[in-house]
């Protein structure tokens, strides 16, 4: 994730990557297998990206459980959006 963080600054792409062009606004969506206290998430949030779910909700919105029989308690799936975009709402299910 640290490498991906290096691609983004102020919510914009810093170089051409695949079809993505430099200065495009960035949205990163994925199963990051990381929780908020891990450095990979903190790195992303320092690049001008905001966590869409956190922006729109007060509940944790967990998506991962340690065991199948246990309720989900941690969120490891995220959509980070450029701070130039406005999140109206977000949902996990």
């Amino acid at each position: 994730m640290r490498t991906i963080s290096n691609w983004v600054k102020d919510g914009k792409l810093q170089r051409d990557i695949g079809v993505g062009k430099k200065d495009d606004l960035v949205i990163i969506a994925g199963d990051l297998n990381s929780t908020w206290f891990q450095s990979s998430i903190k790195d992303l949030m320092n690049t001008g990206l905001i966590d869409a779910y956190r922006e729109a909700n007060w509940r944790p919105g967990p998506t991962w459980s340690l065991f199948k029989w246990f309720p989900s308690l941690l969120r490891i799936d995220y959509i980070f959006v450029s701070s130039n975009l406005f999140v109206k709402n977000a949902w996990t299910g």
Binding site: I17, V26, I27, A29, G30, N33, T35, Q38, S40
Partner: peptide, 17 residues
């Protein structure tokens, strides 16, 4: 606006967590 959407599936680093 031109927007780039990156789809990521990161590795599970459970020991790190």
């Amino acid at each position: 606006k031109k927007i780039s959407l990156v789809g990521v599936h990161a590795l599970l680093l459970l020991h790190h967590a």
